[in-house]
């Protein structure tokens, strides 16, 4: 079990749940598939868009941060909203990445903290926030770009 209050899984299970949730959301709602390469999570490269952060509280506390590469946010928005990529504007791409963050965070927590009633914050820009507590990172290479994710569980002070 991890030390995060309300989390009922071992660290390797949390890591697997995060990956499964992200892949399921990408495939089901955005029609995006993995490209088959793997990538070590690293500091955000310049081509990545602004990070989006969702904080959660209730049975456990923490935050989920996601970054997608610039071209990928546009492809995801075009797929989600059934538009051509040229028709997608910046606010739409950013709303869609926010919804992506919300879904991956909610789907992961439903698995790792199944008995915790949690409230998720509205996704917002998350620059400059230092990770704390127990931290899980993952990175995906997809057919239309790259995703970096970070899930943190905070301990009660």
């Amino acid at each position: 079990m991890t030390d995060g209050v309300g989390v009922e899984c071992r660290p390797d299970q949390v890591q697997a749940a995060l990956r499964r949730a992200a892949v399921s959301v990408l495939e089901t709602m955005f029609f995006v598939s993995l490209a088959g390469e793997t990538e070590e999570p690293s500091e955000a490269a310049p081509e990545f868009g602004q990070p989006v952060r969702v904080e959660f509280q209730g049975g456990c506390q923490g935050a989920f941060t996601i970054r997608v590469s610039g071209s990928m946010s546009c492809s995801m928005a075009a797929n989600f909203l059934a538009k051509d990529e040229q028709e997608v504007d910046e606010p739409e791409a950013s709303q869609v990445v926010s919804e992506f963050a919300n879904m991956v965070c909610g789907a992961t927590l439903s698995v790792v903290a199944p008995h915790a009633t949690l409230n998720l914050s509205y996704p917002c820009a998350g620059t400059g926030v230092v990770a704390r507590g127990e931290v899980y990172r993952d990175a995906l290479v997809c057919d239309c770009g790259r995703v970096q994710m970070q899930l943190e569980f905070w301990h009660n002070e």
Partner: peptide, 16 residues
């Protein structure tokens, strides 16, 4: 890589 799944997702995207 995972060509079957990628074929399936391509259809879903185009149909949506």
């Amino acid at each position: 890589f995972e060509i079957g799944k990628r074929n399936y997702l391509a259809a879903r995207k185009l149909l949506w």
